[in-house]
Nucleic acid binder design. Structure first.
Lengths: 343, 343
DNA sequence: CTGAAAGCGCTTACAG
DNA sequence: CTGAAAGCGCTTACAG
């Protein structure tokens, strides 16, 4: 025996049966009225809709999801949600998803694996259609679990290829090369690379590109890598760089947060003028990069384009497609005031 | 006739029936094994769990939600997700909710009302238990809709009282008063108030407190209010303030983003030294406030405490409680370097 | 185009 | 403690 009284929704108090009775049609007709493209006479649909509206009826997605394949739910799996870049991506994604008629469930992987595991189980329990991994590197096992449960997978800035998933990434290598070129063009003779130890594929790509371009041009690059990706490690990195006997005169930071920290350390702790004594280039184009204290020259993350690519793929691709796709987006350099002689 | 073959889950391929058969128990036993506190023998549960694990069985929340009252889903309704304060709140909330065994669905209200309306309908369709409004002021009608569908409501920094909901707010008035006191104690003679025109209850409270304290102390306050709450309006506000014949020597900004903009305008556009010529106090304690270019003295938003209060209330309060609750949290002043003579 | 019926996967009184 | 049975609210072949 179930909890609610017969034919009455637990929540709204009105089910399809009620609408059917009030409209003088069958339950099936009510269902058809709410299914686009179902075979139902226009007048019947109109009548049903009118009654449904009057009664405040809403289709119960729980029941519908039990039968139909698609739940309309997509899980957004991410860490460091409060970070400028990550939050911008999350905002863009929720907006696009919503416009595509989907709904976003977010799973925060910052904390204990236990709660993440449980949250993911819960998402699976709701027959979530797809999982989007926004983070540099959440546990590989999570992706496995999603796959095993036949979710579509979208991997943003990650490395591994998986059957039936898309990877959306930027051309990080090209950006690293461009950064080196910009520094040299600004007259830098002692180029440096400042990065974290996160070891994320996107960071690695930027580092690689920068190093390659330097090698090809016959330059030695001063490298410094430390901690996690944050403003604080930028401060640390800047301090290390400026404490060297031979100070660099240009630095490519693999992230804006790092670049901003490097600038602050150089200026406030060493009295180094940017860009006069030190040219700085960042990556992400976080809002703070445009603030008047920084005016950082940096690469823009095409956040909107990433969100679009993600939602497009979800909309068009069929679940369990065998082949994996790859979308590579460009990151373009935004000139502001932190590189000598430009901007 | 349904789509999948008999007794087989659409997704995982394994249902409770399969587990029951393999374990040699009834379907009810399987259900009980997955229900904490259900009346089932320990050995039976162990046996079921073992088989379930081996088969990769997961409870289908869709089906469970159809019967049980709680879905475990809570909707987070917010605008400006990419803003430092809002994203910090979102991060804290998702984390806490997750630890409490709930799952967060986020509805982004930045864009078209159409998609918001639809997303909310979808959340309702999933029998979402509660809605948390993080924004200053989303459409009142949304809250009405939630209420009509018997969701619990958590209103953060909002004004309206509603039956069966909690309001979580800060003591903004006290903060405004404290800010005034701090400015006067620093020797300011021409205190100013810089705010946006958002007209949010929290902003209004801070403004009020500041004005009241000034009036009581016999000071006239220089006021400037403009645009939305952002760094850019801070820049605008700072420019207006510094363009006055009689420049203020201390300013309380109702938000950190505004304060940071005011500082940048004062320093970079007018060569005004902070805190020597101008003391600045903000509100929120956004990460950027601690950056070395700013070292802003500001009030800390107790983001974690807000999230805790929200989740606690959700966990303890029963749906459809008639009386509304109010939780008021203090905002404490964090001394850094933007006020003369302190920090 | 329409309705009666079966079924989605689960839970929960009921009777033992 | 356990199982058989009813039911949650919906959708979809099937037969008309």
């Amino acid at each position: 025996m179930a909890v609610a009284s017969r034919g009455t929704s637990l929540r709204t108090g009105v089910s399809a049966r009620d609408v059917a009775e009030a409209a003088g049609v069958s339950r099936a007709a009510v269902s058809r009225a709410f299914t686009p493209g179902a075979s139902i006479a226009p007048q019947t649909r109109a009548k049903v809709m009118k009654v449904a509206d009057a009664l405040g009826y809403q289709v119960n997605s729980l029941a519908r999801g039990l039968i139909r394949a698609e739940s309309g739910i997509v899980a957004l799996i991410a860490a460091e949600l409060a970070t400028p870049y990550r939050s911008a991506l999350l905002a863009a994604l929720t907006e696009r998803l919503q416009e595509a008629g989907k709904v976003a469930m977010v799973i925060n992987t910052d904390r204990s694996d236990v709660s993440v595991e449980r949250a993911l189980r819960q998402a699976i329990g709701y027959r979530t259609e797809a999982a989007v991994f926004l983070s540099g590197m959440p546990a590989v096992s999570l992706a496995e679990t999603c796959l095993r449960n036949r979710m579509q997978l979208v991997l943003i800035n990650r490395d591994e290829e998986r059957p039936g998933s898309v990877r959306i990434r930027l051309d990080d290598n090209a950006a690293g090369r461009t950064a080196f070129g910009a520094l040299v063009a600004a007259g830098c003779l002692r180029p440096a690379l400042a990065t974290s130890k996160a070891g994320t594929p996107s960071l690695a790509g930027r580092e690689q590109g920068f190093r390659e371009a330097a090698r090809e041009a016959g330059f030695a690059v001063i490298e410094e890598a430390v901690g996690m990706t944050s403003y604080e490690t930028g401060l640390d990195l800047g301090t290390r760089l400026m404490s060297r006997a031979e100070r660099p005169d240009g630095v490519f930071c693999t992230t804006d947060l790092i670049a901003l920290g490097v600038m602050d350390a150089a200026r406030h702790r060493f009295g180094v003028a940017v860009p006069r004594d030190l040219s700085v280039i960042g990556f992400d184009d976080v809002p703070q990069a445009a603030w008047e204290s920084y005016l950082l020259t940096t690469f823009a993350q095409p956040v909107e384009a990433i969100a679009d690519a993600c939602v497009d793929w979800l909309a068009t691709s069929k679940p369990a497609t065998p082949e994996a796709s790859l979308v590579t987006l460009p990151a373009s350099l935004i000139w502001r005031g932190s590189v000598r002689g430009r901007g």
